[in-house]
């Protein structure tokens, strides 16, 4: 069985590699855009807690967290054309991933900011710094070490989420396995290959993150 999988991989290397490429690209774009969305949303929620926009962000986050990603994907995939916007399946998928991950990252940012002791804000304000400066120059940099691990976790989640793009016919890793399976009728080995690819990607990601964290000196002691 394992040798079947091994042979299958080399036979259909191109298919799998294309799937991997698409998945990684989608995840990378999704993460970058989600970071932007998430930081803006998270900071807004933290800074304007009671206001309308703060509550709107809360609703956005709650919606994303309490509905399945598949429904969100379908919503965007069927909804955009209905609004007259035509995008390729790939980019539709990226937008859905951004929409989804943005909410989770917003929560991580908010959590990281909340974890900073009030004294920091008080000191900064008493020095006469304006709120925007306080947020971006004092609070967020300190929240960084807390937020970063969570964000890398979200990147791993994103890679897993790319599998849903299967349902809108994007050739990512799961669809690659499905195609190979359909061609050779060796489904189990085909999916085992995709399983191995996902695990390998995660291992590599974890290694990179560990390396980065140890180099950048993100130790527990650096907080406050």
């Amino acid at each position: 069985m394992f040798s079947d999988a091994y042979d299958l991989f080399w036979q259909y290397e191109d298919t799998y590699m294309e799937g991997l490429r698409n998945a990684l690209t989608a995840a990378a774009f999704g993460l970058c855009m989600a970071l932007v969305v998430g930081m803006l949303a998270g900071v807004t929620r933290y800074a304007s807690r009671g206001s309308i926009i703060g509550r709107a962000v809360a609703v956005y986050v709650s919606f994303v967290r309490n509905t399945p990603l598949l429904v969100q994907v379908y919503f965007i995939y069927f909804g955009l054309p209905a609004m007259g916007v035509t995008l390729s399946a790939f980019w539709t998928g990226v937008i859905a991933l951004t929409f989804n991950s943005g909410a989770y990252i917003a929560e991580m940012v908010r959590g990281g900011l909340n974890a900073i002791p009030r004294g920091q804000t008080e000191a900064a304000m008493s020095l006469g710094l304006r709120q925007r400066v306080v947020l971006w120059k004092v609070l967020l940099p300190q929240a960084g070490p807390t937020i970063l691990p969570a964000v890398t976790g979200q990147f791993v989640q994103l890679i897993k989420d790319t599998s849903l793009l299967y349902t809108i016919s994007v050739l990512e890793i799961t669809k690659a396995a499905d195609d190979v399976g359909n061609e050779t009728y060796q489904f189990l080995p085909a999916y085992m290959v995709s399983c191995a690819i996902y695990v390998a990607v995660c291992i590599v990601l974890n290694l990179i993150v560990d390396l980065y964290e140890s180099r950048a000196g993100f130790s527990r002691h650096q907080r406050a």
Binding site: K160, L164, Y166, F187, C195
Partner: peptide
């Protein structure tokens, strides 16, 4: 199981 997507697993 934490590194692989559920969709893929259910297909498997």
């Amino acid at each position: 199981f934490r590194s692989t997507p559920f969709l893929m697993f259910i297909f498997l």
